[in-house]
């Protein structure tokens, strides 16, 4: 029993030391040669494939080509986040991750909202905009 408690104390102390790690004043993970090279190789692959597909003329279906290209981009952004920006749920007690999640939510609303609203407006404006055909002058 006593030994378990002692072990628990030791773990707590270690965690404490990690959190207040003083050997780097910024207290951040800077990765290793291995993690940077992994990220780099993955990025090269994820960049080369969409470029090759589009340069070769793409698939028969435009939608499929676009979906593959966008999919690769999303995966590559995640690769950069993990291997280059060293994102994790621990740094700054999770606040960097919270800020990121908040930003992504706003980003999706701004992008999806703008495209949706403007696409609908364009579609609905079309007949009225055709002044010349209606003989309304310009």
């Amino acid at each position: 029993m006593a030994s378990i408690e002692a072990q628990g104390d030791k773990h707590r102390a270690e965690r404490h030391a990690e959190r207040h790690g003083d050997h780097h004043d910024d207290g951040h993970d800077h990765g290793s040669v291995r993690s940077y090279l992994t990220g780099f190789v993955l990025s090269v692959i994820l960049t080369a494939i969409p470029f090759a597909i589009v340069m070769a003329g793409g698939f028969e279906s435009r939608f499929l080509t676009a979906a593959v290209v966008v999919g690769m981009a999303i995966v590559q952004i995640l690769v950069h986040m993990v291997y280059f920006l060293h994102m994790n749920t621990r740094s700054d007690e999770g606040w960097t991750m919270m800020a990121l999640i908040f930003t992504v939510v706003i980003l999706v609303i701004v992008l999806a909202g703008s495209l949706w609203v403007m696409f609908n407006m364009n579609t609905n404006m079309m007949p009225q905009m055709n002044h010349e055909a209606l003989g309304l002058g310009s």
Binding site: T47, P50, V54, A66, V69, V70, M72, A73, Q76
Partner: peptide
């Protein structure tokens, strides 16, 4: 830049 080359260049060229 990943967003730029994907959405501006690659999707524009499809």
């Amino acid at each position: 830049w990943i967003g730029v080359f994907t959405f501006v260049y690659l999707l524009g060229m499809i």
